[in-house]
Computed example of a mutant assay.
Amino acid sequence: MNMTESLPIVLTIAGSDSGGGAGVQADLKTFSSLGAFGTTVFTCLTAQNPDGVSAIHTVSLDFIKQQLDAVFQYFPVLACKTGMLFSEEIISLVSEYMRSKPVKLVVDPVMVATSGAKLLQDDAILALKEKCIPLASLITPNLDEAKLLLGKDIPSSSALESAAKELYEIYKVPILLKGGHLKDSKSAIDVLFDGKAIYSYQKPFLDLVNTHGTGCTYSSAITTFLAKGDSLPEAVGNAKEYLHRALETSVTTGKTKHLFHFAKD
């Protein structure tokens, strides 16, 4: 990179992960690896590692607003992702703020951590559905999140396409339905429906790799590629390749292996 080259500015609005593998920490690693300049707004601080979340501390609404102001008053943000928003109050504040911002918005509807910890309060689900999702350029639910958004299970890989279309009909925004938790498939299948066409993305499962932080990494990679000018199907495809490469090159971190954000082609 030369000294005159500018980087696309991207933003994550999410929670922290003291273990470094998910949340804002994963987002920043992804942004940097893919050649974007990452900015941050913290919504929550978590005490967590890959085994689980032991404590959640919410950031005050006033300070969240101050962070948003600090970023948008200075930086020409091109694309933004939301991760852990946690409460109805935070969702309402962020949604109202982002409503006036002409940026591409990727909403990762973070509800439950890989470890099983709840990352969204029960009374916040309706606010997410009604206030945040309608603003999105894309939402990226996994199967558990899609069940809450759709109101029913997605039993098999053959149901992914119809479920993505149903979600689109409800929320009227593009859907990337992630099928990585399906029991009947030998590969990680994701389905994108943008309101016009279905796109399918597949990669083989990798053994002995911890998937902590994959959802955050995936959505922040999509955000970066959108900021770089990719179409939505291209951004998802490029992000899927990046995520798989990061998993393939996982590094040992204590008890297990975790994805490596800075792997090269």
Rank of each mutant, 00 (worst) to 15 (best):
A127F: 03
A127H: 02
L128P: 02
L128W: 05
L128T: 09
L128F: 02
K129S: 06
K129D: 10
K129E: 08
K129I: 11
K129T: 07
K129W: 04
E130W: 10
E130P: 09
K131S: 07
K131W: 06
K131G: 01
C132D: 07
C132Y: 03
I133E: 00
I133L: 01
I133W: 02
P134T: 01
P134G: 07
L135I: 09
L135M: 00
A136D: 01
A136P: 02
A136T: 03
S137W: 07
S137E: 10
S137G: 07
L138T: 08
T140F: 02
T140Q: 07
P141T: 05
P141G: 03
N142D: 03
L143Y: 06
L143H: 00
L143I: 09
L143R: 05
D144V: 15
E145K: 01
A146S: 08
K147E: 09
L148M: 12
L149P: 06
L149F: 02
L149D: 02
L149T: 02
G151L: 03
K152I: 13
K152E: 15
D153T: 14
D153N: 15
D153G: 08
I154H: 04
S156Q: 10
S157K: 12
S157Y: 13
S157R: 15
S157I: 14
S158R: 14
S158W: 11
S158L: 14
S158P: 11
S158V: 13
A159H: 10
A159S: 12
L160E: 01
L160W: 07
L160G: 10
L160P: 06
E161A: 09
S162G: 12
S162Q: 14
S162M: 14
A163L: 06
A163C: 06
A164P: 04
A164S: 10
K165N: 11
K165Q: 15
K165V: 13
E166Q: 10
L167K: 03
Y168W: 08
E169L: 13
E169R: 14
E169S: 14
E169W: 13
E169Q: 15
Y171V: 00
Y171P: 04
Y171L: 00
